[in-house]
Amino acid sequence: MTSLFNGASTLASSFRRLSLASSSSTLLAPAKASNALFQPRNVLQVRNKALMPRRVKHRKSATGRVAVALGGSIKGTVLEHGDYGLRANQATRLTAKHLEVCEATLKKALKPIRGCQIWLRLFPDIPICIKGNETRMGKGKGTFEYWGTRARMGKVILEIGGPNLRPEMAKTVLRLASAKLPCTTEFIDRNSSARLGYALVPHVPAKSPVTTRGALAAAQAADSAPVEAPAPTL
Rank of each mutant, 00 (worst) to 15 (best):
T2M: 08
S3D: 15
L4N: 12
A8R: 13
A8C: 11
S9H: 04
R16L: 11
R16F: 15
A21S: 10
S22W: 09
S23L: 09
S23F: 13
L27F: 10
L28R: 09
P30D: 09
A36C: 13
L37I: 11
P40L: 07
P40R: 10
R41I: 06
N48I: 03
N48Q: 11
M52W: 00
P53Q: 05
R54P: 00
R54H: 08
K57M: 12
K57I: 13
R59C: 09
R59A: 15
A62Y: 07
G64N: 08
G64R: 07
R65K: 14
A67R: 12
A69T: 11
G71F: 09
G71K: 10
G71A: 10
G71W: 02
G72S: 04
I74C: 10
L79K: 04
E80L: 07
E80G: 11
D83F: 00
Y84S: 05
N89E: 06
Q90M: 07
T92D: 01
T92Y: 02
L94V: 04
T95P: 10
A96T: 02
H98G: 06
L99F: 04
C102G: 14
C102E: 03
E103H: 11
K108I: 00
I113G: 03
R114N: 06
Q117R: 14
I118Y: 01
I118T: 06
L122F: 03
F123W: 11
P124C: 03
D125P: 08
I126E: 04
I126M: 02
P127I: 04
I128D: 12
I130C: 03
K131M: 10
N133V: 12
N133R: 05
N133A: 14
T135F: 02
G138S: 09
G138V: 08
G140F: 08
G142A: 02
G142H: 00
G148Y: 01
G154Y: 05
K155S: 12
I157G: 01
L158W: 01
P163L: 01
N164K: 10
R166H: 02
R166V: 01
A170K: 01
T172V: 05
L174N: 04
R175T: 14
L176N: 11
L176M: 13
A177Y: 02
K180M: 14
T185W: 02
F187R: 03
R190M: 07
R190F: 01
S192R: 08
S192W: 12
S193I: 00
A194Y: 03
A194H: 02
G197T: 02
L200F: 13
V201L: 04
P202S: 06
H203I: 00
V204H: 12
S208A: 10
P209H: 06
P209C: 03
T212W: 01
R213V: 07
G214A: 08
L216W: 04
A218S: 14
A219V: 10
A222I: 00
S224I: 07
S224C: 08
A225V: 05
A225G: 00
A225S: 11
P232V: 01
T233D: 09
L234C: 00
